[in-house]
Each structure stands twice: as C-alpha cells, then as structure tokens.
Design a protein around this nucleic acid. Sequence first.
DNA 1: CACCGTGTTGCCCATCTACTGCTACAAATA
DNA 2: TATTTGTAGCAGTAGATGGGCAACACGGTG
Lengths: 109, 109
Amino acid sequence: MSAVGQRIRELRKTKGYTLRQLAPMVGVGFSYLCKVENGRLDSSDSPSESLIHRLAETLDGDEDELLLLARRIPPSIANRIFEMPEAFRTLAECNDRQLKTLAKQARKS
Amino acid sequence: MSAVGQRIRELRKTKGYTLRQLAPMVGVGFSYLCKVENGRLDSSDSPSESLIHRLAETLDGDEDELLLLARRIPPSIANRIFEMPEAFRTLAECNDRQLKTLAKQARKS
DNA sequence: CACCGTGTTGCCCATCTACTGCTACAAATA
DNA sequence: TATTTGTAGCAGTAGATGGGCAACACGGTG
C-alpha cells in the first residue's frame, strides 16, 4: 500500500475501470499494475516516470502529485532547481513553518 | 566540457592530482574519469551519485554543488521536497526575481 | 453448485546505466 | 630523448530498472 498506489487505485475506481481494462490503456500488463497499486514491486520501489505520466493522463489525475507520491521529482520542479540552484538550496534548509510562510507569500504576489 | 567536469577538474588541479592518481582514490578507471571531466560520456549520461559523493569527499568539494552541476537533485533537497510538496510546487512556479527575493528573506530569518 | 470476473502472487526476463579494461596516441614535461 | 599526462575508441558487463506470464484466491451471480 504505497502512497502512489493508493491514489492510483482511487482514481481508477472513480473512473470505474478494472485492472484488466486500465492496463492496456496505459501500455502495461494488468499484473504489473496490481503490484504498482499495492506497492509490491519486487525490484524497484516506484513505477517509472513515463508510466505515471500515462496513468495521470488516462485517469485525469494530477501528474506532479502522483510523481511526488512515487518519490520522484517532477521535471517541472527539477528544471527550476537546475535554473536557480542557490535559491532552492537555501529554501530546502528552511523549516516547515518558514516554508509555509514563504509559499503563502509566493501565492499572494 | 560539461559543467560538473569543469568543476571537478578545477578541484583536482587544486589538489595537484593527476587523473591516474585520483581515479583509484574514488574507485574508477582513469579513462572514465577523463571522460567525466570532458563530458565525453556516451549518450550524455552523467556520473553516478555515489561517484560524485566520493569525488566531493576526496577533493574537498561541495557535494550538492557537484550534484546540481551534474543535473542530479541532491538528496538534501529531494527529501525536503517530499516532506513539503505543496510548498515546493508553488515555489517552483515563481519567476527568477521572486525566487531571489524569497531566498533572501529565508536567509535573514 | 459451477462459473466468471476481479484482484493477487511468484518467478522469469529484457533493457539500460554506469561503469571496466584495454589499447593506442598526442602533448607536455624534464 | 624518455617519461608522464591527458584523450579517445571500443567491446564487455554486473546490477538495477521496468516489466511479462501463468497460475492462484476469492467473492458475487445464475
């Protein structure tokens, strides 16, 4: 029961799909999809970025949310980090309260 | 002439090491290290996180700086993102000027 | 009960990444 | 000139990544 898995299952149920229906839509086998939802992947611990992309698309989910739940950094964030590395290094050192305040300020302006 | 490569070469020169000296210290072959410094890795793959770790250690360099130059997200930043995903999603949408301002504020408090 | 659709599991496998290891050669150094 | 240093090509590979297949379990339905 990984975090992504749980969310994917929710999205799938909302769409009313079964594992065997959804699997071919996103180009994987139904058994693999089952393992993804239950966090039972034998080797790696999270689905690939491209699979998450197709899942988000097919299930009308938030791709970046799913990526983050799968402990993968969304490219939208990663690219920004590579563009402004110093800023994100200092931001990453902030505590939770500070970060919330800064994010709130960012939303206002 | 990749960004990491250039920085690694600087650090190595400062320490006065040759490629053949440094390579065994970080556990790789000298020819591979040469390609890393010159960005001549096949199909533009970057040096592994663990190699960069050993290089930073041996050359007294800033590990996170090297990681970022190698277009890898340092774990120190990645973990913080997974802890505060919403905050970083909004921060990543800020423009350069906003980010600089926010980082400056963060440093003050 | 028999059946069927659904989900679950164990084992197997192809591809890719990050290298190794060797060779040869050019340029710098002494 | 002799030795050291850096460059470059190329074949090969262990381990991680990203899956597939077949069988099995289980609950609802006729």
